[in-house]
Design a protein around this nucleic acid. Structure first.
Length: 451
RNA sequence: AGCGCGUUCGUCUAUCGGCUAGGACGUGGCCCUCUCAAGGCUGAAGGACGGGUUCGAUUCCCGUACGCGCUACCA
């Protein structure tokens, strides 16, 4: 029998990075084994849940490239779904839960208590066979000793999480429950419930948690806890996927950079680690840089244009060839797209703000005549291309008896406003003679500087 | 408090009892270089602590400490 796994998030308005990793591991296991990946929405809290919140989950999974074989097609709980084990929204499964409660009541396995319905929990320790942690024997805690039975339906008629979760997994034919380790202790309850229904429980695999850099639990308001922020901050999904795979799972052979396709081949439950992992933002950034550098030109272009648009710069007002040439000088130089507007904004605006620190160093009296010579030399150029510009600048430096670097820094600053940036000669070519000369002239005319 | 899970460089990890403890991110130095990246070379940095088993323990067992989780008519 092919495995059936599921990701069952609650639509709270954001997708936790740990939840995303749980979804990823489930998806990887399904893809590795040729099984089925089910998406189920646990939208029992009508007050909090909304279609927008469901969309956050759906879009997050889509962004990561985690397609589901069964589950919602839209965020509408009453809308179309794929798969024949639905409904896939808990809000649509009331009848299923009621029937299951009735079954338990009629078999004397549950009883009414102060308006609520409680499940008759076994008093014996329960063995939890876990594919990651190993066999775990969970005895009752002291409080549970006093009253082992737990509520499965609240007095307001709402069935609780433990109950609906088990009913759904049972009815959806889930064979492997891969979820966060925070559910390990409660698994005893789930196993007891499965047994009460006369069904063998699924296999469990509890995966370690993702913690903040300081070791604390990542909660909603922690920076980086929401998956959405990564896309917003200009990260590539393949980098986030890759990094997430490395938290709590290891390919074991020192390889760090793997595509999802490669991970699918190698992924299996026994390689999952048992201890929690701290989220290392720097390593994610490194992976992001790796993927960003080898991005296909058209995709780089598309994402770059989007990044500019987000800061209010409409690159469409410039000729396409110019934009492409400009962005091409940035390929391989930036890691995240959010850096781009600051890095290459000079291509799309003329009112430059000179970096103060760099200006203090470069715009000094002895550099003024030098920059004037550069301007004059550039002005005589017929072909304003990188090779010619480089030759001209070097020749000018030789004439002045200085190193090229002496000319490069003021020139770069005058033309871009920044001390760093794309290759100077290429950027000059893209900008074109007119703009370059105009900007140098402008810088030379600034009285506030040291010249 | 009770119960559960965990503990290798700052971080992510490798190690099926033989380890001069390997790799990666980050970090130091050097090289390359028009800036910044990238790249190359080269350093520093680790087995929580205490017992036991064993010829030998990072690896197995016990205890302690620390971290995390769970003990809800939250999910």
């Amino acid at each position: 029998m092919k495995p059936r796994v599921r990701f069952a998030p609650s639509p709270t308005g954001y997708l936790h990075i740990g939840g995303a990793r749980t979804a990823l591991f489930n998806w990887l296991y399904a893809r590795h084994t040729g099984g089925t990946f089910v998406l189920r929405i646990e939208d029992t809290d009508a007050a909090r849940n909304s279609q927008e919140a469901v969309d956050v989950i759906l879009n997050g999974l889509r962004w990561l490239g985690l397609n589901w074989d069964e589950g919602p097609l839209t965020a509408d709980a009453t809308g179309p779904c794929k798969g024949d084990r639905g409904p896939y929204f808990q809000s649509q499964r009331k009848a299923n839960y009621l029937a299951r409660v009735e079954a338990l009541l009629s078999h004397g396995l549950a009883y009414e208590h102060e308006g609520a319905i409680k499940f008759k929990m076994t008093r014996e320790p329960i063995l939890i066979p876990d594919l990651v942690v190993g066999d775990v024997l969970r005895p009752l805690t002291d409080r549970e000793q006093a009253d082992p039975d737990f509520v499965i339906v609240r007095s307001d008629g709402q069935p609780v999480f433990h109950f609906v979760n088990v009913v759904d997994d049972l009815e959806m034919g889930i064979t492997h429950v891969i979820r966060g380790e925070d559910h390990l202790s409660n698994t005893a309850k789930h196993i007891a419930l499965f047994k009460a229904f006369g069904v063998a429980p699924p296999h469990y695999a509890h995966i370690p948690l993702i913690l903040n850099a300081d070791g604390s639990k990542m909660s909603k308001r922690d920076k980086g806890a929401s998956l959405t922020t990564y896309g917003d901050d200009g990260f590539l999904a393949e980098a986030v996927d890759n990094y997430l795979c490395l938290l709590g799972w290891s390919p074991k052979d020192n390889i760090e950079k793997l595509s999802l396709a490669e991970v699918i081949e190698r992924f299996d439950l026994p390689q999952i680690l048992r201890h929690n992992a701290k989220f290392d933002f720097e390593k994610l950034v490194w992976l992001q840089g790796e993927y960003c550098r080898e991005l296909a030109p058209d995709r780089f272009y598309e994402l770059a244009v989007h990044a500019f648009a987000k800061t209010g710069v409409d690159t469409n007002t410039f000729p396409t060839a110019y934009v492409k040439a400009a962005l091409d000088t940035c390929r391989g130089k930036i890691k995240t797209f959010s850096e781009l507007p600051a890095y290459a904004g000079f291509y799309f605006k003329d009112d430059l703000a000179y970096d103060p620190e760099a200006a203090q160093k470069a715009f000094v009296p002895e550099n003024k005549p030098r920059l004037e010579r550069v301007r004059d030399a550039f002005g005589k150029l017929a072909a304003f291309d990188a090779a010619n510009l480089e030759a001209t600048l070097k020749a000018t430096a030789t004439e002045l008896g200085v190193k090229v670097g002496v000319l490069i820094h003021p020139t770069r600053l005058a033309v871009t406003g920044n001390p760093h940036g794309p290759s100077l000669y290429h950027l000059l070519e893209v900008l074109g003679k007119e703009k370059v000369l105009g900007r140098i002239e402008l810088a030379l005319g600034h009285r506030v500087f040291g010249w």
